[in-house]
């Protein structure tokens, strides 16, 4: 039985061991590189190289169909004065805040509910269903369901005596609507990630809490949350970065409108690159966004201390 519990106990013995091993840090270099080799190959070929190329292109005037011409920092100078870029950035931020805020709370609730209530694979499977459907189709289904005149949701609202809402059509509701549609697609997926984290919390901790007569609420805040921190950091970093990349839903529903209310940053970059063939400028936008995202990710990791859980 002691063996059985051990693998579930994170980092309890890690720190002394780490100290012991600090001096041997070089010793692992060769095996580390060997273990990294395949992934590093994929990373360099399919990520780093295109990224470097994009970085280079951001200093050029490149129309995709003719060779790039070096223009120095001109693209970046233009980005700074580009009103639509800043607007698209605020729109994206609004989206991320709503999307991540709601999604994290709902997914966490779902994961904890599943963890504490039932181990039914069926329920977990059902919650993962939306993730099985392509983004574009999810967007289209909700687009028809939420229509102001013919949508089933508005028929429902009318039944209870409410006025129809043009969810995707109003400048004020379009972004929240898109954010919530994507919460629908990702909440089960996010819940599953969190759920995987919950399962790595040793059941002995809950047993102890139960013996002390702690309420579910108290157990959640005092045990679950602190122990879940590494996984929550993971989930937050991943979902926040993913959330910034919102594109498909906008592309098939509002196309950036009405007015500029849903022109999110990726959609703006896409328009510049593939509709206006201003690839150099789009690359510069991309680099700026990259810097912002890297900053956000670094801050998240630092603030939430990704490596540690409080199980000591």
């Amino acid at each position: 039985m002691s063996v059985a519990v051990a693998p579930q106990q994170p980092s309890a013995t890690e720190r002394p061991a780490a100290r012991l091993r600090a001096g041997r840090s070089r010793q692992d270099l060769v095996p580390a590189l060997l273990f990294l080799l395949p992934a590093a190959f994929g990373f360099v070929t399919f990520y780093a190289w295109p990224a470097l190329r994009t970085f280079y292109l951001s200093f050029t005037d490149y129309s995709l169909l003719a060779p790039p011409e070096w223009v120095g920092v001109q693209n970046y100078a233009e980005v700074l004065g580009d009103r639509r870029f800043w607007k698209s950035l605020t729109v994206t931020l609004e989206y991320v805040v709503i999307n991540i805020g709601v999604q994290t709370v709902v997914a966490l609730a779902l994961a904890v509910l599943m963890h504490r209530l039932t181990k039914s694979t069926l329920i977990r499977g059902v919650l993962l269903l939306p993730y099985l459907v392509a983004n574009v189709v999810v967007a289209l289904v909700w687009y028809t369901m939420l229509d102001a005149q013919l949508g089933i949701v508005n028929s429902g609202l009318e039944l209870v005596g409410l006025d129809p809402v043009a969810f995707f059509g109003e400048t004020s509701t379009a972004i929240p609507t898109i954010a919530l549609v994507n919460v629908w697609r990702h909440m089960g997926y996010t819940a599953l990630l969190i759920f995987a984290g919950l399962q790595s919390i040793p059941s002995s901790v809950y047993e102890a809490a139960a013996i002390d007569g702690a309420s579910e609420w108290r157990i959640f805040w005092r045990i679950t949350m602190p122990l879940l921190r590494p996984v929550l950091v993971l989930v937050l970093v991943l979902t926040v970065i993913g959330s910034f990349q919102i594109f498909d839903t906008v592309a098939v529903t509002t196309k950036g409108g009405p007015i500029d209310s849903t022109r999110v940053i990726y959609y703006y970059i896409y328009e510049k690159a593939f509709q206006q063939f201003d690839f150099g400028y789009a690359a510069a936008l991309c680099v700026v966004l990259f810097v912002i995202l890297a900053g956000v990710a670094l801050a998240q990791v630092k603030i939430l201390r990704a490596g540690d859980s409080d199980l000591d």
Binding site: D147, A148, L150, G169, T171, P258
Partner: peptide, 11 residues
Amino acid sequence: MPDLATSRAGV
């Protein structure tokens, strides 16, 4: 004629 929001809302 329906307003812009209604026309852009889905269908």
